[in-house]
């Protein structure tokens, strides 16, 4: 079963890579979807470049939101920041009820069209799962190792670095994984405000009634999301193993 899964994932990765590099090979596959004689494969830009731009926006936003969310999560779980914990948790819950399009639409007036509003929306939306999981992970650190570390004479920052963060890391990575997967999909909406990415392909299809384009953009984005989800999962398991040994 596990071997079948691995083979499937490898096949998906290979298919995605082939499609992005030599999309014309798939022309006969998509041709039945547009009988009107329009091009079966997206021809208004390089698919690989769009996919890389898409990934670039998602990763940049993910790194920024992970750094900020983990820092905030650490701050509110210290004694000094405890006063901010309940409100920040409520805020996170409230933020999750915000529709991603609304975040995107509200960012446009602030920074104009293009990549920037998409980056802001993805950053803001990616903060929530990471923050929530950082707080949950740090709160779940058992008292015994902390007491032991204190007994060994570790300072608060040493305890944070060598006990609390390693133990909370799997949870934090799970949050990053969630936020990345949501953002791969949300980034396609960014193309409605002129951000570069695979959403362009979908929107071009919607505008010209070309289902082949819509399907290409959708499938490529979906595959990227699934593969990233699996890749971060692998990373997570590896981190879990090393942190258990340490």
């Amino acid at each position: 079963m596990a071997r079948v899964g691995a083979a499937l994932k490898f096949a998906a990765l290979a298919a995605l890579a082939t499609f992005l590099v030599v999309p014309q090979r798939f022309a006969s596959l998509f041709a039945p979807l547009n009988p009107s004689g329009a091009p079966p494969i997206y021809d208004q830009g390089n698919l690989l470049a769009l996919a890389l731009a898409h990934l670039g926006i998602v990763c940049l936003a993910a790194v920024a939101s992970a750094v900020v969310a983990v820092t905030l999560g650490i701050l509110v779980t210290r004694d000094r920041g405890a006063r901010f914990l309940p409100l920040s948790r409520t805020l996170v819950g409230f933020g999750q009820t915000f529709p991603p399009v609304a975040v995107l639409a509200l960012a446009v007036p602030l920074v104009g069209f293009g990549e920037k509003p998409t980056l802001i929306a993805l950053f803001a939306y990616g903060l929530l799962p990471v923050f929530e999981n950082t707080v949950a992970g740090l709160k779940a650190v058992p008292a015994e190792p902390l007491d032991a570390a204190r007994g060994m004479g570790m300072s608060a920052s040493e305890r944070l670095r060598s006990v609390e963060l390693p133990l909370a890391l799997p949870m934090i990575l799970e949050g990053v994984r969630l936020s990345v997967v949501i953002n791969v999909g949300t980034a396609t909406i960014g193309s409605t405000v002129a951000a570069k990415g695979l959403g362009e392909v979908i929107i071009a299809g919607l505008l010209s009634n070309n289902d082949a384009f819509v399907l290409q953009g959708g499938l490529a984005t979906g595959l990227i999301a699934v593969l990233l989800y699996e890749a971060i999962g692998v990373l997570e398991r590896r981190v879990c193993r090393t942190s258990r040994i340490a």
Partner: peptide, 17 residues
Amino acid sequence: NVVQTIPSIALFGILMA
């Protein structure tokens, strides 16, 4: 789970045909 990863604008579009 796979359905959830399909971007919404693509799913809306794909279902039109």
